[in-house]
Design a binder for these strands. Structure first.
Length: 315
DNA sequence: ATGTGTTCCTGTCCGC
DNA sequence: TGCGGACAGGAACACA
């Protein structure tokens, strides 16, 4: 179950950015929160970097106290006073298989539980691992969580919970775009005097943490700003529109993920790769979705990455 | 210090 | 039908 291959690449658009990670967290919660990791199976030495020493042993028996997100990182706080840091990279996914034959409570968009009935392999246990299944958690309650990552750009590490934000992967991250410290004054100060394109600036995780290539295109379209515009040459009034544009795009995507989670999970244990309709990403040649604009979306390459925008209404 | 290019990796898609 | 190559992207890293 849950093994239909989500496409990646040009047509795929299923790359985990902040909203996808948020959706993954919500999907993991019913199976993991306040439950023990009964067994951890680590099937290779590492992904992008080596796993920490004795990772499987350090995880086994631990109870999950909190599931948190920082930027695109999943943080799993354990009662061993260590925190498991997970990054999904570009193709990483967390698969949740309910306890064979047992219902698994499913948290819906409003936190109202539904019920997901396990598939019919009751008594047969979980099926064996498949290709690119790198780490497997068997949870108290019988659910199995599988980290699958074809391209192995993902990462896992363990850090002391008390100092988790001092970890090298987290220490230099900018503010959360949905948090209180991200506002017009902050963004203005960070863009001030910068000569790089705004597209590149918004991808810089030290400036704002959690945006990726897809949502940056969406954000800039919403704010009517060209991806080519120099970061330091955006009028302050337009920087002000950028902040709510970022928040709105992310919040709408999270809402979309949350609502699709319910439907998705009924046929597919795969989390965080929900259908989402982008306004400009991947839509080169199509009409600009802005009502009063009759422009056409174009694709350009900046720093080796695709940007999609409307040259008519984005300046 | 700042900006750009390279690198890791595999699945998918395209043209021949 | 098969094969080679381009392409996708997160983020550390090397380099101008």
């Amino acid at each position: 179950m849950g093994r239909d291959n989500a496409p990646t690449g040009p047509k795929g658009c299923y790359v985990p950015e902040l909203p996808e990670v948020e959706t993954v967290l919500r999907g993991l919660a019913p199976a993991m929160l306040n439950r023990r990791i009964l067994h951890a199976q680590v099937r290779r030495d590492g992904l992008r970097w080596p796993f920490p020493p004795r990772m499987a042993e350090r995880l086994a028996g631990c109870r999950v106290l909190h599931l948190r997100r920082r930027s695109k990182y999943i943080l799993i706080d354990l009662d061993s006073d260590e925190t498991l840091i997970i990054h999904l990279g570009m193709s990483g996914r967390m698969l949740v298989a309910p306890a064979p034959g047992a219902p698994l409570p499913l948290v819906g968009r409003d936190g109202v539980g539904g019920t997901l009935v396990g598939n019919d392999d009751a008594g047969g246990g979980h099926p064996g691992p498949e290709k690119h299944d790198h780490v497997i958690f068997d949870m108290e309650g019988g659910a199995r969580i599988t980290f699958n990552d074809a391209r192995r750009f993902g990462a896992m590490d363990l850090a002391p919970s008390a100092d988790v934000f001092a970890h090298r992967l987290l220490a230099n991250l900018g503010p959360e775009p949905l948090g209180n410290h991200f506002d017009e004054a902050y963004l203005t100060s960070r863009l001030q005097g910068r000569n790089l394109p705004i597209k590149s600036a918004l991808l810089d995780q030290r400036i704002v943490a959690g945006l990726g290539n897809i949502y940056v295109s969406e954000v800039l379209h919403r704010a009517s700003i060209s991806p080519k515009r120099k970061a330091g040459r955006i009028a302050s009034a337009r920087v002000a529109t950028l902040v709510p544009a970022i928040r709105d795009v992310l919040n709408e995507a999270i809402a979309s993920g949350g609502s699709s989670l319910r439907d998705h999970r009924q046929t597919n244990g795969e989390l965080g790769y929900f259908q989402h309709n982008f306004r400009v990403y991947g839509r080169q040649g199509q009409p600009c979705p802005t009502a009063s604009c009759n422009g056409k979306i174009v694709r350009i390459v900046q720093s080796g990455r695709s940007s999609f925008y409307c040259p008519k209404c984005q300046r």
